[in-house]
Design a protein around this nucleic acid. Structure first.
Lengths: 182, 182
DNA sequence: AACCAGATGTTATACTGTTGCAACGCGCGT
DNA sequence: ACGCGCGTTGCAACAGTATAACATCTGGTT
């Protein structure tokens, strides 16, 4: 079952967005980037902050503060909420992580250090998330704000929908249902 | 003091976005629209729901669930959280209100009934908010999602920054400081 | 009347985030 | 070494946001 590779149904531009990734590689690269960012800013990437960032990088889903707290507790003594929130504040402030408002959860930034207005694609089926930064969106939004006389400092953009994998899964299910019905 | 009308410093395209509005007019029109939407959908705009929507329409700022709850309590007996959350769920579900994630607060929709991907301009100084729906933003975001193979159902876009009024106020303050310094 | 569905009432609780203060560590200048 | 400042962490309590679960009511239907 499930040999859909041959079908080639949706010839879209290669979706890097939800592409799988090697967590070890991703993490080591991202951690080096984070160190560089902190060094450049004179900020301290302490043990706790580093560990929280690692946890975010390892996860394929955004993590809530209390989920992170639990994991921290497995490694260190009984940490309290402020511990995790402070670490998260630090990471967000320095552009190493983002808060996903829709989920009250946090995710590691894909472009640490760069100034950007990220757009998040949130799959409501598998809860996976993808961070993209489309220049056209940024331009359009900047222009719209400017037209309203609004001075934009920061933006949060979150799309809810279905990721490529869940779309394919749904299509397969549909196809199967279709077949049996005949 | 403050006769800046003559200056004409920022010749932008007329900012409808944060323009003041007549609350009575706005409300009566919006309530009629809400009734029409509910009638068309076979949904009941009950007393509580109607009152919550009115409260949102009367406010120039988004209101938190518990703020709404307090106001409801002044009029009805001791209402409980679920009461207000249910009303808000209803209003959001039928496109009569939006939740502003950034503020954990709710605001009446400016285009009730229409299917849209609203963008919110949130002033971090005065907390006022403006809902715009820029077609170029929608197009760009839709295209970006499509390119990622993502099937978008819903979008939330929130810009944080400074509204026209607060910008002018700040410019005035700057100008005043400049003057005295000389 | 018996019944159903949707709306509301009620109680308790879960989840998310913050305040305030004490203590620790570490570099730094004297 | 000493004291000092400053950023980080520990800790206890609490504030704010949201939901679960179950009871009750109301209006329309059979």
């Amino acid at each position: 079952m499930a040999k859909r590779d041959e079908r080639g149904e949706r010839p879209r531009s290669a979706p890097k967005a939800f592409a799988p990734h090697d967590h070890d590689l991703r993490r080591s690269g991202a951690m080096r980037a984070a160190e560089a960012v902190c060094a450049a800013r004179g900020a301290q990437l302490t043990a706790i902050r580093r560990r929280v960032l690692e946890l975010l990088l390892e996860s394929h889903k955004p993590l809530g503060a209390y989920a992170l707290l639990e994991r921290l507790r497995e490694e260190r003594g009984a940490a309290q909420p402020p511990t995790i929130y402070r670490a998260l504040d630090f990471l967000v402030e320095h552009g190493l992580a983002h808060k996903v408002m829709r989920l009250n959860a946090f995710t590691a930034c894909s472009h640490p250090g760069e100034r950007h207005m990220p757009q998040f694609l949130i799959c409501s089926e598998c809860e996976r998330i993808s961070e993209i930064t489309d220049p056209a969106v940024m331009r359009a939004l900047g222009a719209a704000a400017e037209a309203a006389g609004f001075e934009a400092h920061e933006a949060a953009m979150e799309l809810l929908g279905r990721c490529p994998a869940c779309r394919e899964a749904a299509e397969e299910a549909d196809a199967a249902a279709e077949t049996t019905r005949r």
